[in-house]
Design a protein around this nucleic acid. Structure first.
Ligand code: MN
Ligand code: MN
Ligand code: ZN
Ligand code: ZN
Lengths: 154, 154
DNA sequence: TTGACAAATACGTATCAATCCTATTTAATA
DNA sequence: TATTAAATAGGATTGATACGTATTTGTCAA
């Protein structure tokens, strides 16, 4: 284990303890696997990888662990939240606010759609067919009751 | 049927014919249901609604129909694509490019993160915990072979 | 108007991610 | 080292989606 990894593990330990989470070999393994990945993996993908060196680890644990990490804010869940596919009849360029509590998607329009600047390196490297600002958080309805989703573990 | 709906149906018919799709009662019903919805519904939600007035329509048809519509570009699929949940260890503010062909997610950083302007109405109405520019399209690897995904029906 | 035929549908089955259940194990603390 | 709540493994369940196929139907040309 080199210095960089030790620091990583150390920081991980501090963050877990701060939230009252036990430090388990499974959590360490999941965290390291995700931290060292650049591919925004799914739970299944991480599990498939870990099983080589940690044969007894279960998919359920990997999944729960990742969700726990996301809840305490040491990792993020990215778009494609595993919910059923959602459709939109509105093909005008517009943006979305996604409520993490009630799962509603709210439209909003950008007064100046061209203000969104995309680095030239990106426009060259990819063929871009869609661009959208994706905001997430809590809608007016849900924002107050969201406070009660405190910090239970798992 | 009022004038507005006739125009809607007319435009729908033209778009389908232009792509060689048959005009079926199911497709009309699905299109109307989505068009009149403001909630970015799932296939299941649309099916549940339609079944009242169209008892024989199957969920499979609703689902296929929506995907067909998305492919010919008369509706959109929005974030939460039904894929397995994806995770990101990188909690810095950054953006994503999502390849529609290989499903890879590529990071990119905004040289000027504060350039993203969010209308004041939105910041007041919602508690925003995340903001990200979500681009989609084809990565360098997939962009050429993407041409072959022409316009088969269903 | 009708007949032929490819396209589309209904519905049962299969798949796969996510979640639940619960007996067992284990990290944390004194 | 003993206690205890937290966490895990792994089997079962759920729910969305995709597939296979017999049947129906929209389209178009005769
Ligand atoms: Mn929308
Ligand atoms: Mn990322
Ligand atoms: Zn809400
Ligand atoms: Zn790709």
């Amino acid at each position: 284990m080199n210095k960089k990894q030790e620091i990583t593990a150390d920081r991980f330990t501090r963050l877990c303890k701060a939230r009252g989470l036990k430090i388990t070999p499974q959590r360490i393994a999941v965290y390291e696997a995700l931290k060292n990945s650049k591919e925004h993996p799914s739970a299944d993908r991480i599990h498939k990888q870990l099983v080589h060196t940690f044969p007894s680890i279960s998919l359920d644990t990997v999944n729960r662990t990742l969700i726990t990490f996301a809840r305490i804010g040491i990792i993020d869940v990215v778009e494609g939240q595993g919910d059923p596919r959602r459709f939109d009849p509105n093909r005008e360029a517009h943006h979305h606010f996604y409520c993490l509590s009630c799962n509603k998607i709210f439209d909003f329009h950008d007064p100046d759609p061209e203000q969104i600047h995309i680095p030239e390196q990106i426009t060259q490297m990819f063929t871009i067919t869609g661009k959208r600002l994706c905001l997430s958080g809590y809608c007016n309805h849900c924002r107050y009751q969201a406070a009660e989703t405190a910090t239970p573990a798992n």
